[in-house]
């Protein structure tokens, strides 16, 4: 019991991540602006569809257009349709032509929410007689906005709720990498010392890693399908993952084709070291290729530096830790089974 404290810790952390990661609400956000293009010198009704907002229960919601200089133009005639939908009007003056404006909304329950560069003002050729007055831009002190209480995950326009996949999908890859590293360490130790235990540990860790890899591919594929519309995208990380899966399946195949335990241990350890090191250059090569062949091919939206904000971190790092602990646990089970089999004289 005392020795297996880390297993209990792993389960508890996983429980914390699953419950917390699924129950913490998302920040409110704007999913749709219709129309997103307005014409200069025109007054037009804009329908705003939002997510996770409380337009009806909150104090009147106010909507602004924010210019690049930090000036605000408030919308008139805000009409609340539902909790998540409202319409409003802007008087678009002539001098706003050709610019992009951030749309910001605020009420006392949801706090502020915005779409960067949500509305584009186009040139209007037909309506010459439209109002020529200057737009009434004012200063709004955003520091006065009440922040909603409690923990909230950031809202990202395409990701929506799937930002939670950071804990269940991205963490899986991190844990997989750690397990493979442990497997590699034991493979090297096996070649150095020739102790069978290292071989058993090495396979056990690699098998846990392979399990996580398979799960990562499935969950990633699911994620891609519902956010970007395809089961597979030409993403750097995805292709690296696929390649490493091929190699580790090859490793399992190799291990299954020996009748001699000693040769199997030695040769599969050499292969796993060779394969691991030989793929390291790929980390440096692929960015070079994507720069020249596929310009603007970005990385993973959930892990781009600033995107990983502190509320996500609160669950992301524990999730990695929990998955590593569970992986070590599964590896330990495999290892003990192998030991038992050898003791009983059974070749597995």
């Amino acid at each position: 019991m005392l020795l297996s404290w880390w297993k209990i810790l792993g389960i508890l952390i996983l429980l914390y991540v699953v419950i917390g990661g699924l129950s913490v609400p998302l920040n409110p956000g704007i999913t749709d602006l219709n129309p997103g293009q307005l014409y200069a010198g025109q007054q037009k009704e804009v329908t705003i569809t939002a997510y996770n907002t409380h337009f009806k229960t909150a104090q009147p919601t106010r909507i602004w257009l924010k210019s690049a200089e930090g000036k605000f133009l408030e919308a008139q005639n805000v009409q609340i349709l539902t909790e998540n939908k409202l319409t409003c009007h802007w008087d678009i003056a002539k001098n706003m032509e050709g610019q992009q404006y951030t749309v910001i909304g605020y009420n006392n329950i949801d706090g502020s929410f915005l779409v960067p560069d949500g509305i584009v003002i186009l040139k209007n050729d037909s309506a010459e007689e439209a109002n020529t007055a200057e737009a009434q831009f004012t200063d709004v002190n955003t520091a006065d906005f009440v922040k909603p209480s409690g923990l909230r995950f950031p809202y990202r326009s395409i990701l929506n709720e799937t930002i939670r996949n950071t804990f269940f999908h991205v963490a899986l890859w991190m844990a997989m990498f750690v397990l493979y590293l442990l497997g590699l360490y034991h493979a090297i130790q096996y070649l150095r010392t020739g102790k069978n235990e290292h071989d058993w540990w090495s396979v056990a860790y690699n098998k846990s890693g392979i399990l996580y890899g398979i799960l990562g591919l499935i969950t990633g594929s699911l994620w891609a399908r519902f956010t970007w519309g395809g089961w597979w995208t030409n993403d750097v990380k995805l292709n690296m993952a696929a390649l490493s899966m091929f190699l580790y399946f090859g490793y399992l195949l190799l291990r299954n084709s020996f009748n001699d335990a000693e040769a199997r241990a030695r040769i599969s350890a050499s292969f796993s070291i060779f394969a691991f090191v030989a793929l390291i250059p790929l980390v440096f090569i692929i960015p070079r290729l994507t720069d020249s062949l596929h310009p603007g091919n970005g990385g993973n939206p959930a892990l781009g530096g600033e995107d990983l904000d502190h509320t996500l971190r609160l669950f992301f790092y524990p999730s990695i830790l929990a998955l590593i602990l569970l992986g070590c646990w599964m590896a330990q089970l495999k290892f003990r089974m192998q030991k038992l089999a050898i003791k009983a004289g059974i070749y597995t």
Binding site: N52, F168, L211, L222, L333
Partner: peptide, 22 residues
């Protein structure tokens, strides 16, 4: 509802995968 069910499907897959392995 913001694709929350695809997230839940992912969580179920992960837990199920670990369960089947065990």
């Amino acid at each position: 509802t913001g694709k929350i069910y695809s997230v839940i499907a992912g969580v179920v897959i992960v837990l199920l995968g670990i369960g089947v392995y065990l």
